[in-house]
């Protein structure tokens, strides 16, 4: 049970970063953390049954379910792409406005339009 609670806490930390923090970079951190929490959850629960790595060769028995691991590899790759893209956008916003604070960025962009 304790392991699930820890994963839940990690998830909440990420959510707090994503919503509570005003800094764009910290928001991206938050997103990475909630993504990581779900990955850990999948791997943890998927690895409970079975003990050997799922390499299907003669003599290998009692393997863990390979599907969650394959899914999470994909999810990690997607997470990296999303993080990279978000950081690139944060950088462009900083270049345009000179700030990483989302409220300030919005204000300065609005001023620029008027």
């Amino acid at each position: 049970m304790i392991d699930r609670i820890i994963v839940g806490l990690i998830f909440l930390v990420g959510l707090w970063g994503l919503i509570g923090k005003r800094n764009l970079i910290k928001k991206v951190f938050g997103l990475s953390i909630i993504n990581a929490a779900v990955v850990i959850l999948f791997i943890m629960e998927g690895g409970k049954a079975g003990s050997s790595a799922p390499i299907l060769e003669p003599g290998v028995r009692d393997i863990v379910d390979p599907v969650p691991q394959a899914l999470m590899l994909t999810a990690i790759v997607i997470g990296v792409c999303v993080t990279a893209l978000a950081l690139a956008m944060a950088y462009r916003l900083y270049k345009a406005t000179g700030s990483f604070d989302i409220d300030e960025v919005r204000e300065r962009l609005d001023d620029g339009h008027r």
Binding site: A96, T97, L109
Partner: peptide, 16 residues
């Protein structure tokens, strides 16, 4: 520049 903020917000909420 506004498009970057729009895309950033869109990315954040839809990735979440």
């Amino acid at each position: 520049p506004g498009a970057f903020l729009a895309a950033f917000s869109y990315l954040m909420v839809s990735a979440a």
